[in-house]
């Protein structure tokens, strides 16, 4: 059971949040010009890394804000959480060992 830092509210219990998968997948513009493969890539395909992963979280029992978090999928360490408009914090270079 994690503690997650909401960029607006601070540290909160995981049960106040929901996770919505990989972050930073912008919706394509001009979708009608896309091939089925290109569109399928956007709709269906996500990375599933063993290691650092940028994810979208929603503080749904809290401020109802969406934000991004950088989490290690093995250690579950949250390296950073940041607002949607914020620049991406760098991935630590220790390979995720903690």
């Amino acid at each position: 059971m994690f503690i997650i830092n909401c960029p607006y509210c601070g540290d909160r219990d995981q049960t106040e949040f929901s996770c919505h998968g990989e972050a930073h997948i912008p919706r394509p513009t001009e979708t009608k010009k896309m091939t089925d493969e290109e569109w399928g890539e956007y709709v269906f395909f996500r990375t599933n890394p063993k290691g650092y992963h940028r994810e979208r979280w929603l503080h749904d029992h809290g401020c109802r804000r969406w934000f991004n978090a950088l989490r290690h999928t093995v250690t579950d360490e949250f390296v950073a959480s940041y607002k949607i408009e914020d620049p991406r914090p760098p991935i630590p270079d220790n390979g995720g060992q903690s």
């Binding site: 509210c9 219990d13 106040e16 749904d60 029992h61 809290g62």
Partner: peptide, 10 residues
């Protein structure tokens, strides 16, 4: 003040 969870209620 805070919004949180009480049981299953927001």
């Amino acid at each position: 003040c805070t919004q949180t969870r009480f049981g299953n209620a927001s």
